[in-house]
């Protein structure tokens, strides 16, 4: 793993989906067994670029996610590496039995891309807003589950997925969100990235919550509190060693996720702490609620996903030491 944090995290000029497409164009060029299957949402992630260059390996299954997923499993069983995309809600809830059996249990390389995770589904509203997609995939015993944050990370992780022999699931923010990493960063599945060192509290975040975590770290610094920040882009298998080490160093933990805390990053971290190093812990994320329609800024506020919420959680965790 090797990466450099961008000095200022501002709105990204490149859309994350283009990180996926850029990686796929290289993968498809180098490896004739790599294919992309879509579910009438090619336009949403610019997969037309794949279809233009590799029409014989880019497929549109139509609005039929269950068939697409099981077909991906069957295709993968013949020796192909199959990436399959839909909105995260439909790439998880809608076709879960197929993902579980035809891909997971069958132990074949199906790589699921779920776009618009959590509040990034924004104007598509409740039916399109998955807060449990990561949890569903984490319940598949052999699945790798990722929550990517920006173009650079999406590019790197797409390549890492292609090298995995069994099922992977990556949450993909479609549009440009915030720049976290300088170009050329390389990430290792299963290892958290330490973005800031600190001694009073550790903030473990991923995806759109990283930007809030970094802002929270600055606010805390102003209050004389030293926070460590980790990008835990791999939710499963979770980096136990780093969690335990951070708990030992800082004595308390705050997690931050764009997902239900009860079945996502927070619970995965809690599982480790409870068994190996119990310390006070707070979880920022969706607290057992459904999605709703609205712009992303409103939703971040509505579900208490902002830097201020992380700051308060950090103070609570510290006070419980």
């Amino acid at each position: 793993m090797n990466f450099t944090l961008k000095a200022d995290h501002q709105k990204y000029k490149r859309a994350n989906r283009d990180g996926y497409i850029a990686a796929m164009l290289e993968l498809m060029k180098d490896d004739p067994s790599v294919v992309h299957i879509d579910c009438d949402l090619m336009g949403c992630i610019n997969a037309g670029k794949l279809a233009a260059k590799y029409p014989e390996r880019t497929f549109n299954a139509g609005i039929a996610e269950q068939n697409a997923m099981a077909a991906a499993g069957g295709m993968a069983a013949t020796g192909m590496k199959v990436f399959v995309h839909s909105f995260a809600a439909f790439a998880s809830r809608r076709d879960f039995d197929q993902a579980f059996l035809a891909a997971g249990y069958s132990r074949v390389p199906v790589h699921v891309i779920g776009s618009d995770p959590g509040v990034t589904a924004a104007f598509n509203g409740a039916t399109h807003m998955p807060f449990e997609d990561g949890g569903l995939y984490m319940s598949i015993p052999n699945a790798i589950v990722l929550d990517s944050c920006d173009y650079v990370q999406t590019y790197s992780l797409t390549k890492k997925c292609a090298a995995q022999p069994e099922i992977t699931y990556m949450r993909l923010i479609r549009k440009g969100f915030k720049t976290i990493y300088e170009d050329g960063a390389d990430f290792e599945i299963g290892k958290g990235a330490v973005l800031r060192e600190g001694s009073d509290v550790t903030i473990i975040a991923s995806g759109i919550m990283l930007d809030e975590a970094l802002k929270a770290q600055e606010i805390l610094e102003g209050k004389g509190i030293s926070a460590k920040v980790i990008d835990m882009f791999t939710w499963k298998p979770i980096d136990e060693e780093l969690i335990v080490k951070s708990a030992e160093e800082t004595g308390c933990i705050v997690t931050a996720e764009n997902h239900q805390v009860g079945c996502g990053l927070g619970s995965a971290v809690a599982n480790v702490l409870v068994k190996k190093k119990p310390v006070p812990m707070e979880m920022i994320g969706i607290q057992n609620r459904f999605g709703q329609v609205g712009d992303q800024d409103f939703l971040m506020k509505e579900y208490n996903l902002l830097a201020d919420d992380i700051v308060k959680a950090a103070e609570r965790a510290i006070s419980r030491k």
Partner: peptide, 13 residues
Amino acid sequence: LNRPGTRFPSHTD
């Protein structure tokens, strides 16, 4: 339509 807290979301509810 699609405003915060709306009764008129993009998809019928």
